[in-house]
Write a protein that binds this DNA or RNA. Structure first.
Length: 421
RNA sequence: GGAGAGAUGGCCGAGUGGCUUAAGGCGCACGCUUGGAAAGCGUGUGUACGUUAAUAGCGUACCCAGGGUUCGAAUCCCUGUCUCUCCGCCA
């Protein structure tokens, strides 16, 4: 959601940002609606003031038993006039809100131009992309050969894009989730949180998943949504609040199941568990003041990077270009892990600063010392996607005989197991 | 799933159509008082939008949300949401 006053103040800059995302200008239309809205609203408020005065006068006359029929007639007239003005204000506000809600966030100045991922900018690479003396296998080849990753049974149960893990791989998935949570709570200052995975419209709208991405999410028959990410309940937890500035930054982390319909991605990553309808993810959410959000973004991204470093998986940090930056984000860093089996960098985390974009949609504010309430900034990042991390650990830790070496940091979570298979 | 009760400001709480500009209390802030504190006294104490150079004033709206009745709604009517109590079922 955007501030109509900011748009009014500099319509050209607003449209220029939209153009960077490949979108048509809208400012002129919105500004003219806003101008009319303010005029009509002022006229309406004058009528309301008159109605108020009339009601008080009539009340006085009635108490003393005097005739008030002339004033009551004026009241009827005023009500009719107000109805027209009210409808016009509601129409203008509705139209404006509908468009504002459908527009993506303003981009940070540091976001590079470009319409797709080809224009993303690699910031740095950690580690050396692993190479093997033998032909590296993909995770599903490894997992199926070990008998611990079963897509056939999953399709029997649920259909395509699901998986059944068992034995040591199931345990490794659990170990990864525990390891990540422990890191974020013990080392990184996030508060562990358990959240509902079914949420209402308001939570989805506030975190900018509605109205635009309704077709990417699953909806229950009673009108709730399966969360596409724990970002939704974690961030929406502060909806409508005015937080004490002293409690910021607020950092929360959650391990949750995530659900995505993957509509429109037919044919992409159909093999293996890279792209599933249901997956586990450890999410980080930070709520900060506007002054702190940029530093927090860097801090959060580092928290995600450190997980990969401890797991010994080579990765690179990518600054997304304008066209690839998500709807709600002002700026996004993706972390891409090296997958030797695919011989490719694949997204394993995405850390975004939404600034006040979500805060406006959910009306989440803080009170600066002695000042008026202001919108908080919200940030979210994967720390990390558990299923994809499992893939990375499998492919990077594979041995020629098809066994998988368990990263040292995970061994305490796996009963000391050093090797799978 | 069934039955009932409720939702008023930061908190408690009064309020069954106009005399409510939401009483009163608590909390909080500031001031007076004091050697200092407490007590006491006084003043103030929300959000949004409009107007405006203004975070000064002024205006409008807001008593869970959305509709309706009325000259006039916290108050009456309808719908929804949430909370609580009891019964049933249940990990």
């Amino acid at each position: 959601m955007h501030d109509i006053r900011a748009l009014r103040a500099d319509p050209a800059a607003f449209d220029a940002d939209l153009a960077r995302r490949g979108m048509d200008p809208v400012a002129q239309q919105l500004v003219s609606w806003d101008e009319e809205r303010r005029q009509v609203q002022t006229a309406l408020q004058e009528k309301q003031a008159r109605r108020k005065a009339l009601a008080r006068e009539i009340g006085g006359l009635k108490r003393t038993g005097e005739d008030s029929s002339a004033l009551e007639a004026e009241g009827i007239e005023i009500r009719a006039e107000m109805e027209i003005l009210e409808r016009r204000v509601a129409d203008l506000e509705g139209q404006t809100a509908e468009i504002l809600a459908s527009l993506p966030n303003r981009l940070d100045a540091s976001v590079p131009d470009g319409l797709d991922e080809a224009a993303n900018v690699v910031q740095h690479v950690w580690g050396t992309p692993k190479e093997f003396s033998f032909t590296a296998r993909q995770h599903f080849e490894l997992g199926e050969a070990l008998g611990l990753m079963d897509f056939g049974t999953a399709s029997k149960l649920s259909g395509a894009r699901f998986v059944v893990l068992c034995g040591a791989l199931a345990r490794m998935a659990r170990a990864l989730g525990q390891f990540m949570l422990d890191q974020h709570t013990d080392e990184n200052g996030y508060v562990e949180t358990q959240v509902p995975v079914l949420v209402n419209d308001a939570a989805m709208y506030g975190t900018d998943k509605l109205p635009k991405f309704a077709d990417q999410s699953f909806r229950t028959e009673d009108g709730r949504w399966l969360i596409p990410t724990a970002e939704v309940p974690l961030t929406a937890s502060i909806a409508g609040d005015i937080l004490d500035a002293l409690t910021l930054p607020r950092r929360m982390t959650a391990l949750s199941q995530c659900f995505r319909s993957e509509a429109g991605s037919a044919g992409r990553d159909v093999r293996g568990m890279l792209r599933q309808h249901q997956f586990e993810k450890v999410e980080m959410v930070s709520v900060t003041t506007p002054e702190e959000s940029e530093d927090e973004h860097e801090r959060m991204t580092r928290c995600a990077e450190k997980i990969l470093e401890k797991l010994g998986v080579s990765y690179r940090r990518v600054l997304l270009c304008a066209g690839d930056t998500g709807f709600g984000a002002a700026k996004t860093f993706d972390l891409e892990a090296w997958l030797p089996g695919q011989a490719a960098w694949r997204e394993i985390s995405s850390c975004s600063n939404t600034r006040d974009f979500q805060a406006r949609r959910m009306n989440a504010r803080f009170r600066p010392q002695g000042g008026a309430p202001a919108f908080v900034h919200t940030l979210n990042g994967s720390g990390l996607a558990v299923g994809r991390t499992l893939i990375a650990v499998m492919e990077n830790g594979q041995n020629e005989d098809g066994s998988i070496t368990v990263p040292e940091v995970l061994r305490p979570y796996m009963g000391g197991l050093e090797r799978i298979g």
